[in-house]
Structure formats: C-alpha cells, structure tokens
Nucleic acid binder design. Structure first.
Lengths: 239, 239
DNA sequence: ACTGATATTTATGAAGACAAATAACCCAAC
DNA sequence: GTTGGGTTATTTGTCTTCATAAATATCAGT
C-alpha cells in the first residue's frame, strides 16, 4: 500500500525517517491510541537521541497524531466517536470546497486522468468483487486527486498534509472498510462528471453529500449498537 | 490589542514565550515576509540556545508562518496575492461550516452573549465613526466567537490555532483595514440572527457570502491596480 | 489502616559540543 | 570576461549533558 503522499517531500533526515516509522506505527495501531509516549523509551527503541526523537514528535504533533502538554509529556490522540464525527464535518467543508476549486482549476489532462482511474477502479472492483481494495486504496486515491486538483496550496496542505493521516488512523482503529463501495463508486462517478462539466457548485454539493453520507452511515451504526451495549470502539462500525 | 487566543494555552516554557515574540514580530512585519531565518542569529537575539529556538520554530511552522527545508533552513512565508486568495477560499469553507455548526450547537447563553457584543460594537462604531476599531478587533472577535460556538475541536484548532495568525499577518502586511465595515456589520447581524433561529443552512450560506464578499473586494482592487502598474504588495488593497 | 508530608526517582526542558551538508568564495583555465 | 573546480566558512542536524519540574514512593502521625 502506498503510504506516502506527494505533498510531503521524501524524508532525508533521520528525524524524518523516524517520524514516518512512528506515524505508521500509530496509524496501524501498533502504538495504541491514547497511550502515553515515553521519550527515553522511544529514543532507545529507534536507536536515536532524545532531541532527534523530539524533532520527530513535533512533526507528529503537526498532523494531529499526538498531543503535548508542557512539562508533562506526549500522548497519542485517542480515537473517540465524537472526534471521528468532527473529522467528517471538517472533511465535508474542506473537501467540498476543494472539489469546487477542482472543477474550476483542473486541467483537461488531469480530468481525463481521473476518468481513466475511475474506469480502472471499476474493473478492479468487478474483478475482485471484494470491496477491500476499492475502499482502502481507490477511495483515498480518488479524494486525493480531487484535492490536488484544486490547485490550492492551503487546502492541499491542510487536508493531505495534516488530516490525511488522522483519517487513515481512524479507518484502521475502527476497522472501517466501508460497505458503501458500490454506492460510493456511483457518487465518485457523478462528481467527476460535474468537474468535467466545470460545474463547481454541483461538484461541491455532490462531494459534500458523498462525505456526509459516510458520516450518517457511521452515526446510524452507532445509534444501533450503542443502546444495546456500551462498548465504544473497535469493530463498532465495521459493516 | 488582544494578541492571544483562548485556544492555545498560555506559555509556560521559554520556547513558548520566544515563539510568541517571534510570532508577533512576523505578524507585525518586523521580520520581513519572505526573509531567511538565521538560527544562530535569532538565538543570540533572544538570548536562548539554538535548541530552544528550534523548538519555537517548530511551533511557527505549525501555524504556517515559516517554511522549512531540510539542510537548508527556514524562511518566513511570503505574502503573495495568490496566497491571500487561497486563504480566503479556505476560510470560506471552514468558517462557513463552523457557522453552520454554531447554529446547531451554540448554547442560548452564548448566542445572547454574541448579540450583546454586536450591540457594543455597533455603538463603538458610531462613536468613533472611524472604522479601524471595528474591523481590527471587532471583526476578528465576531468570527472568533462563531468558530468557538461550533463546539467542534477540529474546526477550532484548524482555524483559531493555525490559520488565525496567518490571517492577521496578511492583514498587517497588506494594510487591510477594510472599507467594508458598515456592510460587514449588517452581514454580521444577519448571521447572528440565523444562528439564533438555529438555521444552520442559512447561517453557513451567509457566512460564506460574507467571506466571499471580502475576497471579491480584494480581487477587484487588484484588477484595478495591477494593470496600471506592476507593484504587487503593500498598500495595494487599502481602501 | 489510612492520610499527609517529605524525599527519591523519573521525565521533560534547555544548553552546549560535534558532525555533516550546504552555501560562499577564490583562483585558475578557457 | 565568464565558467568551472576546489577550498573555506557557515549553517543545519544530531548527540550529550545539565537543570528543573512532575510523579512516585517512603515514612511518620493520627
């Protein structure tokens, strides 16, 4: 799986490399969500000095994967339902606008590229008739291309540079290989159509509905599961 | 002028204090936009070690006031017209959504508080019949309260914690004490009304129009000024 | 046995020293 | 005069060490 994104330039310094390793460990849940981070411990584990580790921690803080309190230390963010819903709200706003801008600013080549990508995904989806690939990779790819298509550095940095990994973390932690694959495919298709038509208003509306639908899907699952038992996390959402 | 915002807890460590000082210096233009940052130089100037300064630089990077390249160094972001417009686009998306959420989530007390604030600003505006105060402080206060009213930690962190200072920087650098004060007041008033009516959809729409109007105002100024001469920055927008 | 204060330990914040990479400079050759 | 290579100098990245604040454990007193 492609773990890196084109926005963050590839790691050259050791702090960068360790950052990516810890990032991966957090996203995949190897370092559990909500746990305290021991600077001396992690530094020893990765065979680096504490100052280098702290440099890495700063990057992690930048993309909201850890939180720091002065004179106390760092914790991995804990994945709460509320946090997940708030993240979706934010995505709806940002990606909606990104989609509108994409409709205005994407080049014809970029649009053609996205259309072929969608076709590839379509075939792959039919072939595997499993849903995992499409949602896991294809969905992210789609959203990614739209965001980059906005040609808005501010939006790209915020979504791809910061929220992206948090989204992936929630996906992993909650085991969300959403069951909405086939519907999502249609929605993606219509969004691209709107972009191709250079209809920014429609493109934004469709993208927002697309994300809002995912959010409501989650809210429904919660409404079903939560009353019967008070378990709050893992496997709650999974189809 | 109130320089701090309620979201970032007050500085306890020296790195925090230096961070705030440099932040202020950048926002006010004392450290010119686009200039390279000398780590040894700044460390000496603030009488701290380089490692402490680097800690401060990391915070500055977090709120997009400086940019770092590996093995090369840090630069203050340069304020371009494109950057300003992109920032407005992003604000429109985020604050629009924040406004919608505020209409859903604000308590009655918070709403009443905002209404009295608006009245105070109204009187102050009439009294001074100058526009500076309202725009400089009142406008930010208004937007601030709306964002906090969303009760969405993600949105609050993104806008108040990160974009806020960048917005202030652009305001200072471009000398924008916008001439839209009276119109802005009416718009603010209608937005609060929509929030009080718990009409999220309308609240978002009005907020987006409010921000978009500012953006278009700037675009018009540019369209007027740019053809006649190629000067790109300072005083370009000022009424 | 339980509470509260003190002492010990541990972890974080800050400073200084070293190594590696980049940028600046100077001189030679075309 | 301009271009290319090599050397010097500066800057950044990393490590080590010290100081300070928080957390824990210990012990006395009730």
């Amino acid at each position: 799986m492609k773990t890196n994104n084109p926005t963050q330039q590839q790691a050259v310094t050791t702090a960068d490399k360790v950052f990516e390793q810890i990032q991966h460990a957090i996203v995949e849940g190897e370092i559990p969500s909500g746990s305290k981070i021991s600077e001396p411990g992690l530094a020893k584990h990765y065979q680096i000095s504490r100052s280098t580790l702290r440099e890495a921690l700063n990057r992690l803080e930048k993309c909201h994967l850890i939180e720091r309190k002065a004179n106390v230390g760092s914790r991995v963010v804990d994945c709460s339902i509320e946090g997940l819903l708030e993240l979706y709200i934010t995505r709806e706003a940002l990606e909606g606008m990104a989609c509108r801008q994409a409709a205005l600013n994407m080049s014809d080549e970029e649009i053609a590229d996205m259309q072929t990508m969608l076709n590839v995904h379509s075939q792959t989806q039919e072939l595997k008739d499993g849903v995992a690939y499409y949602q896991e990779e294809g969905d992210l790819d789609f959203h990614y291309k739209v965001i980059l298509g906005s040609h808005n550095k501010q939006l790209i940095e915020l979504i791809c540079g910061q929220l992206y990994h948090l989204i992936r973390m929630y996906r992993c932690q909650f085991g969300m290989n959403s069951p909405r694959a086939s519907r999502a495919f249609d929605e993606h298709s219509r969004i691209i159509q709107a972009i191709a038509d250079r209809d920014g208003e429609l493109a934004e509306m469709l993208m927002r509905r697309h994300i809002a639908a995912s959010r409501k899907n989650i809210e429904n699952k919660i409404a079903q599961e939560l009353p019967q038992k008070e378990k709050t996390k893992v496997q709650l959402i999974k189809s």
